[in-house]
Computed example of a mutant assay.
Amino acid sequence: MTESILKYMSISPQPATFIQAAVPDIIEKTEKEFFHKTFLTLRESTDICYALIQEIDCIICPHNRVGSMFVMIGGW
Rank of each mutant, 00 (worst) to 15 (best):
M1K: 08
T2C: 07
S4W: 05
L6Q: 14
K7V: 02
K7Y: 04
Y8I: 02
I11R: 02
S12I: 00
S12E: 00
P15F: 00
T17M: 07
T17G: 06
F18L: 11
A21R: 12
A22Q: 13
V23E: 01
V23L: 08
P24S: 03
P24M: 03
P24R: 05
I27S: 04
I27W: 02
E28D: 10
T30Y: 02
T30M: 03
E31S: 14
E33Q: 12
F34W: 06
F35R: 06
F35N: 06
K37M: 09
T38C: 08
T38V: 11
T38I: 09
F39Q: 15
L40I: 06
L40S: 11
T41L: 09
L42Q: 15
R43W: 05
R43K: 14
E44N: 13
E44A: 13
E44K: 14
S45M: 12
D47F: 01
I48R: 13
C49P: 01
C49S: 12
C49M: 15
L52I: 06
I53F: 12
I53T: 05
I56M: 05
D57N: 10
D57R: 10
C58Y: 10
I60M: 12
C61D: 02
C61N: 08
P62R: 06
R65P: 07
R65T: 14
V66T: 09
V66G: 04
G67F: 06
S68G: 09
M69H: 06
M69V: 07
F70P: 05
F70G: 08
G74Q: 08
G74N: 10
G75N: 15
W76L: 15
